[in-house]
Design a protein around this nucleic acid. Structure first.
Length: 341
DNA sequence: AAACATCGCAACCGCTCCAAC
DNA sequence: CGTTGGAGCGGTTGCGATGTT
């Protein structure tokens, strides 16, 4: 099956690194830079495998590493990124300069997980523990919309716009990426869509084969997937403040034969599904975040909390369904329950 | 003070991906 | 086109530090 561990091939040192070993590795990399890790131990005079050298450099010796405790801001960021990316530590670390995947993983497992549990939040789903149970009950009532195994906590929406606006089934599935675009200011929506697609494809290859036409939509873009390939992507603008107000956005949506349009088409029966920014209804999924529109405020959950008393992440997890449905009077409750905010 | 339990972190292991051959 | 090996990732382990009895 798997390969032999590199330290098995030869008699190589294992365990903690000595200061002398660190010094050797450091001076080698400083002098010659990072090339082939497999050749580093020999050239640097170390009795270690290349893999071990790489890890030591990345996690400990790299000069750009930030040491010490995680700040509140970093903590907030990890939590909101984890909510979207799950245990993809390397991707989370990429958003936190100076922090390593290993460090974040350890911090999550030793501290954040427990902290969330104490707050009554399931660290896996980021939903309140009670609400989670409620969803399980709801799942039984809507067996064809099982979202529990969706990666990235995305909502998999299957619906048929012809049946009086009732969401039932159709050949396209829609994945709303809005929450990430809106609150990770340094994430490029186009790149993210590609990444998500690639990862989603990995996990759900068979689904793509059976039902190959998908649409990833967000307030900022619609990405059309045919037979597992991204065939069309429409971006509505780079800043979130301009996304929804762009007149192009609604035109694009309504002119394309994608599930995005079906969402728009739903607005005749349910305004909640309209992306019409003028009515401030926008998409159902954006609704809870309307007030957090200022680009400058999105950078930090703690800043958001300071100003608004909550962060977008908080809202995402805790916005009560009942409040939403009350606000969106006349809308079909069944629709909301299926969409599961 | 000693024994035991718990915690946090560094490092290892097994696996996948992908480029080179 | 199959094989090989390096790079990278996420899960797990081991051990020293710290806390508790």
């Amino acid at each position: 099956m798997g390969r032999h561990s590199c330290s098995v091939k030869q008699k190589l040192r294992k365990g903690l690194w000595s200061p002398e070993e660190d010094e050797k590795l450091c001076s080698y990399i400083t002098k010659f830079g990072i090339g082939s890790w497999s050749s580093v131990p020999k050239l640097a005079g170390l009795q270690r495998c290349g893999k071990s050298c790489r890890l030591r450099w990345i996690n400990y010796l790299r000069p750009d590493l930030k040491r010490g405790m995680f700040t509140q801001d970093e903590e907030d960021r990890i939590i909101s990124l984890h909510e979207v990316l799950g245990n993809r530590w390397a991707q989370i670390a990429a958003q936190l300069p100076g922090r390593t995947d290993n460090e974040i993983k350890n911090f999550w497992n030793s501290s954040l997980k427990k902290k969330l549990m104490k707050q009554g939040i399931d660290p896996n789903t980021h939903k309140p523990l009670k609400e989670n149970q409620a969803i399980r009950i709801e799942e039984k009532q809507i067996p064809h919309l099982n979202e529990m195994d969706q990666p990235f906590h995305m909502t998999n929406r299957s619906f048929n716009s012809e049946a009086n606006g009732q969401l039932t089934e159709c050949s396209s599935k829609v994945f709303d990426l809005l929450f990430l675009h809106e609150f990770q200011s340094n994430v490029n929506p186009s790149e993210y869509n590609s990444q998500v697609l690639a990862q989603y494809n990995d996990h759900h290859q068979s689904e793509f084969e059976e039902n190959p036409n998908y649409v990833f939509c967000s307030a900022s873009s619609v990405t059309k997937i045919e037979h597992g390939q991204m065939t069309d992507q429409t971006d509505f603008g780079s800043s979130s403040t301009s996304r929804m107000s762009s007149s192009n956005s609604s035109n694009m949506c309504s002119n394309q034969n994608t599930a995005g349009i079906r969402m728009n088409g739903m607005s005749e029966n349910s305004e909640a599904l309209s992306w019409d920014v003028e009515n401030k209804m926008e998409s159902l999924f954006q609704y809870p975040y309307i007030e957090i529109k200022n680009e400058e405020l999105k950078s930090s959950p703690s800043q958001e909390r300071e100003l608004y008393g909550h962060s977008s992440g908080d809202l995402m997890s805790n916005y009560p369904l009942s409040s939403l449905t009350e606000e969106l009077n006349g809308a079909n409750l069944d629709v909301f329950s299926k969409f599961k905010l």
